Simulated assay, not measured.
Amino acid sequence: MAKHTNEPTPDSPDDKDPSAEQPVIRDKRRIDPDTGDVRAPSEAGPSTGSGAASEDGDTADIDGIDELFSAEGPDVELSAEDQQILDQAEQDLVAEMRNDMLRAQAELVNFRNRVERDRAANREAVVAEVLRSFLPALDDLARAEAHGDVPEGSGIALVAQRIRGSFEKYGVRTVGGKGEPFDPHYHEALVQLPSPDVQGPTIADVIEIGYAIGERLLRPAKVAVSVPE
Rank of each mutant, 00 (worst) to 15 (best):
L108A: 15
D63P: 01
E180L: 07
G64Y: 08
R114A: 12
G176C: 01
P33I: 03
Q88F: 12
A204R: 02
A71Y: 05
P8L: 05
G214D: 05
S133R: 14
E215D: 10
Q91A: 15
E96P: 08
P136N: 06
L141F: 09
G36T: 03
A104L: 15
N113L: 11
A20R: 08
P10E: 01
L108Y: 14
V175S: 02
P220G: 11
D205L: 08
V227T: 02
G45D: 09
D63T: 07
I31S: 11
E152G: 00
E188T: 04
D14C: 15
E188V: 04
K178Q: 05
D87V: 06
V172I: 00
A146I: 01
A160C: 06
S226H: 03
V115K: 14
L218A: 09
D34Y: 11
D56Q: 04
I209C: 12
E124C: 03
R219Y: 01
T174P: 04
A137H: 12
G177E: 03
A221D: 02
P201S: 12
V24S: 09
D32F: 05
F182I: 00
G176D: 01
R29P: 08
L78M: 13
G153R: 00
T202L: 01
A125L: 01
P13S: 14
V130H: 00
R173N: 15
G49Q: 04
